[in-house]
Amino acid sequence: MERVAVEDAPGADSETRRFRSLASALDTTGLAINYFDVAPGEPVGYCYHRHHEQEEVFFVLSGTATFDIEEGDVVVDTGEAIRFAPGEWQQGWNHGDERLVVLALGAPREDGPTDLRRDCPECGDRTPVTPENIDGERVFHCDECGAEMGRFG
């Protein structure tokens, strides 16, 4: 048996977002568990993405999440959950006026390949990106033109 308080789990904080890896703290083997506390206007994850092997379930603890999917936007309110099968494109956002708190569950925990995309200002389209760690930040560059598309510490 393992037990952890959210504030004691490893993660990363900024002025606009709080992330905690509960799976790491609980030493889960087959299930990813992530906690997100996100300010209005901010994304839940850093990229529009799809997992090849992992399914994900997002449970909204408070606030309203908007998920950008291939068919358009889907709004998920407090007390609701949404599931993405392997291969489904998605990115969560807080387009509301209050903080968004979401619990994300994924199985298997080590999900294998993931495709990432971001809006490239140079290409004018949502293009594939490759993240790299530079000076403690995660930096995203467009795979097509090389433009920097975001930095997150």
Rank of each mutant, 00 (worst) to 15 (best):
Y35T: 07
E71P: 00
H51C: 06
G150W: 10
G124P: 03
V75S: 04
A104H: 00
E137S: 15
L26M: 09
R151F: 14
L105E: 05
A65N: 07
V101M: 08
V102E: 03
V38D: 11
E88W: 01
D73W: 00
G87Q: 09
E55L: 10
G112I: 12
E110G: 08
G87C: 03
Q91P: 04
D37Q: 07
R99D: 13
P43S: 12
E88Q: 13
T16V: 15
N133C: 11
E70W: 00
G41S: 13
H51Q: 11
T66P: 00
G92R: 05
P121R: 10
Y48N: 10
V4S: 06
Q54Y: 02
E71V: 00
L26I: 04
E56V: 02
C47P: 11
T127Y: 01
G87E: 05
M149F: 10
G72D: 00
A147Y: 12
I69R: 11
V6R: 03
R20Y: 08
G106D: 11
V129W: 05
L103K: 09
R126Q: 11
V139D: 01
A25Q: 02
T64C: 02
V102D: 01
E53K: 13
A32L: 14
F59M: 07
Q90S: 11
N133K: 15
Y48S: 05
A39Q: 12
E80R: 12
F19R: 07
V4K: 01
G63P: 06
D8M: 05
R126A: 08
E122C: 14
E98Y: 06
V44P: 03
R151Y: 12
E144M: 00
D8E: 12
L26Y: 04
D143V: 08
T16C: 09
G63C: 04
E137N: 14
T66F: 01
W89T: 05
E55D: 14
R83E: 07
D111G: 15
G136T: 10
P113L: 13
G106Q: 11
R138S: 13
V74R: 09
E15T: 11
P10F: 04
